[in-house]
């Protein structure tokens, strides 16, 4: 009897966790806007800002001497080649909206898409 009760509590907690996770995933996928720029950060510091409008290839030196080849085309950005062993950043594929990001753990590199918030910075820079 007592064992059954524990079992039910566990199942309820498990289902609650799964529901919370699914809600988080749904909110994440809905909340995205079309991005304008991609910020590349290595070890927490911004290395370069890539305009998504231009088609270009950027080479980044990440931590631990890992080189990343980042390609930007058709308003989306992806890691074409990375020297890291796990290749998770390559598998992640193309990203284009503000709720998406690419993280390469061995290279400590983060590619983050920014949207309208960045326009403020642009105006400041232009002024």
């Amino acid at each position: 009897m007592k064992k059954n009760k524990k079992k039910y509590i566990f199942y309820i907690c498990l289902i609650a966790v799964i529901i919370v996770c699914v809600i988080c995933i749904i909110i994440q996928s809905i909340s995205g806007q079309v991005g304008k720029q991609a910020v590349v950060k290595v070890d927490g510091e911004t290395v370069c800002i890539i305009d998504l409008n231009k088609n270009q290839t950027v080479y980044i030196n990440g931590s631990n001497n890992i080189k990343l080849e980042i390609i930007c085309e058709n308003n989306s950005i992806y890691v074409n080649h990375s020297d890291c062993p796990d290749k998770i950043c390559e598998q992640k594929g193309k990203i284009s909206s503000t709720n998406q990001n690419i993280i390469c753990l061995p290279a400590k590199t983060v590619i983050e898409i920014i949207g309208n918030e960045s326009s403020r910075g642009d105006i400041d820079a232009a002024a």
Partner: peptide
């Protein structure tokens, strides 16, 4: 890697 973006992976990883 000092970025709070890693937390966005948490729901996927928990499932």
């Amino acid at each position: 890697i000092k970025t709070s973006l890693v937390w966005t992976y948490l729901p996927y990883l928990i499932i």
